[in-house]
């Protein structure tokens, strides 16, 4: 059951999503009521307080990662939800979908190494306020969260990068020397102008249990659950 104590988080499932159950489980663990929503749905469940686009390989990553998923019926509802100030988090493929949909800036390209990379990364959280990093404190901090992707190399031209940096919208970077994929300016995660939409390549849902290597992912997802609870 959802309610003020357990805000409802909709986890969108595209054909080829494969981290939706992990995301659901992590969100439940962190106090949300998480439901999986098939991409053909025209609407989000009533009382949805946040949306998560999970990792995976939507539509086989054909053409470009996320390029086809952005046209799924549910994305119109996600777009409207975001425009209304709703919280939307994209993880890995979800981040790719959000950039292709134009809800987040930049684009994710093949890793510089052309190899699939699956390992823990050290991340630096930008200081400042955002609903996705409140549990990290307003001073920022560092997190250890795994990445697993073939196309995680975020790209923006100099002009766009300067604009994002000036606005403090680059909420997450790979720590110095840790950039696994050639991402411009070590960007690991970026927010929209209103900071209610955020995408990141690392997988916080895979780092919420000490038995599985660490719990730093809870700082991101827990922040989201807190913000969703406040919004519910």
């Amino acid at each position: 059951m959802s309610g003020p104590d357990r805000p409802l988080v909709a986890v969108v499932v595209f054909p080829g999503s494969n981290d939706d159950r992990d995301a659901q489980q992590a969100l439940e663990l962190l106090g949300a009521s998480a439901v999986r929503v098939w991409h053909e749905e025209q609407q989000l469940p009533p009382a949805t307080a946040a949306v998560v686009l999970p990792g995976g390989f939507s539509f086989g990553d054909y053409l470009r990662c996320g390029a086809i998923a952005r046209f799924s019926p549910v994305m119109s509802a996600v777009r409207a939800f975001a425009a209304d100030g709703g919280l939307v988090l994209g993880i890995c493929n979800g981040f790719q979908v959000l950039t292709e949909a134009g809800l987040l800036p930049g684009v994710l390209r093949p890793n510089r190494s052309l190899t699939f990379i699956c390992r823990e990364t050290q991340l630096t959280v930008a200081p400042g306020e955002s609903p996705f990093t409140t549990r990290c404190g307003s001073g920022g901090g560092t997190l250890t969260i795994p990445v697993k992707n073939g196309e995680g190399c975020w790209y923006a031209d100099d002009e766009l990068l300067a604009e994002l940096e000036a606005a403090g919208r680059i909420l997450l970077r790979y720590a110095p020397g840790e950039n696994p994929n050639g991402s411009v300016a070590d960007v690991a995660g970026v927010a929209n102008a209103d900071r209610n939409v955020f995408g990141l390549m690392p997988h916080p849902e895979h780092a919420v249990d000490p038995l599985l290597g660490g719990t730093d992912g809870a700082a991101i997802l827990g922040s989201l659950v807190d913000a969703a609870r406040a919004a519910a």
Binding site: L63, R64, A67, I68, F71, E100, G106, V107, R109, Y155, A156, D157
Partner: peptide, 8 residues
């Protein structure tokens, strides 16, 4: 709309 991403 689909085949090219104008950013890149």
């Amino acid at each position: 709309q689909l085949l090219a991403n104008p950013l890149i």
